[in-house]
Amino acid sequence: MYIKTSGLIKLLKPYNIRPRIRSIGRYMDMMELNNGCLFSRYLSASDYTITERKIRKFFRLNDYYYITMGNGSDEIIGLLITIYKKIASFYPSFVMYERLSFALGKRFYHIALNKNFEVDLGRTCRTIEKKCIDLFFIAYPNNPTCNAFNRIVMLKLILQYPNTLFVFDEAYYPFSKKSFIDLIEKVNNVCILRTLSKIGFASLRFGYLFSSRCLHTFIQLVKLPYNVSKQTLMIVNNIFGRIGIDLKEYDKERNRLASFFKKRLFIFINGCCNFFFIKIRKRIVDYLMEKKIYIKETVCQKFYRISIGNKEENRYLMDMINEKTNI
């Protein structure tokens, strides 16, 4: 039984220690005054509802799309794994699918991509059927290979295996603009995972999942209460109320780097993330690291991730590669 408490005066207030911590107390008092946020109170359902409406409005979605919010995408991945038994993903892909599956005592299966880092449909179907996979994570675009898998192949999997939930992790959606979100209204085995981490808000730790009402209800049974703070929701409301992502400079710099890599005869995937998946010699990587250019290793031998920076950063990267290769 639930008792509605909104609008009531709570006589038994929690003991307020803030006046005894003067500098912090003054800062928090100011925050409460400016933002109407009571630090001494738990969140109410209306706090989450406001944020849900902001997100739906931003993406122009109707009320059929239920939203689960989490402390980063990782928490939501963990919640989904808690509900299901046998989990799979492609390889290579985002490492947290496997790591959280093992941490939660679930069986996890890799399905290797082909030599071109595309989906092997036959191998995927055999694994789903043989291992009775009921939860399948698909990074879309894939991380670290930065390519978006063939949409027709994805649709075949979704339609052929209605008892498997396909989670499309669209962390890089702001850059790719490719999505399966339209399928949520058409089928029952698709949900969409997104985050704010890739557009400059990584430390905010905010992830969100679009799903049907049925899946949303199951997630609420295992989700911890108050998993996203009031302060985070306030910032997220402002982000979705004002955000405008201009990718003109990003597109220009991506094309400039791609042209440079082609001229240097590097093997790379010009995908749709904010980085390149590129095959490059170890001595060049070591030299770039010495020059304070961070190159991220991947599980694929001799392949690395190189982020797309701003104009000055990319110019410096190209100059250093030219310097090392004596071109």
Rank of each mutant, 00 (worst) to 15 (best):
L159S: 07
V167S: 01
I184F: 04
I184G: 02
A139G: 14
F175W: 08
L135S: 05
N142H: 08
N147S: 08
N147H: 04
F180L: 09
Y161H: 11
F149G: 00
F137D: 03
L183T: 05
Q160I: 02
N147P: 00
P174W: 11
K130H: 14
L157R: 01
A171H: 14
N142P: 03
S176T: 09
Y172P: 05
Y140W: 03
A171I: 15
D169N: 14
L135V: 03
F180Q: 06
F149T: 02
Q160D: 12
L157E: 05
L183C: 05
K156C: 03
F136C: 01
F175Y: 15
K156T: 08
D182R: 14
F175H: 10
K156G: 02
V153S: 10
F149L: 08
K178E: 14
F168M: 01
L155I: 03
P141V: 11
P174M: 11
A139W: 08
S179T: 15
P141E: 13
F137H: 10
F137T: 01
I152L: 07
F166Q: 05
I152T: 10
K178S: 06
L157F: 05
F166C: 04
P141Q: 13
L183K: 03
L165G: 01
D182Q: 11
F168V: 00
P144E: 08
P141W: 14
L165A: 03
Y161E: 05
N147I: 15
A148V: 11
L159V: 01
L165Y: 00
F166T: 04
E170D: 10
L159C: 04
V167A: 02
C146Y: 03
M154R: 02
K178C: 06
T164G: 05
I152K: 12
I158R: 01
I133T: 06
I181F: 06
L157Q: 04
I184V: 15
C146E: 13
P141G: 07
I152H: 12
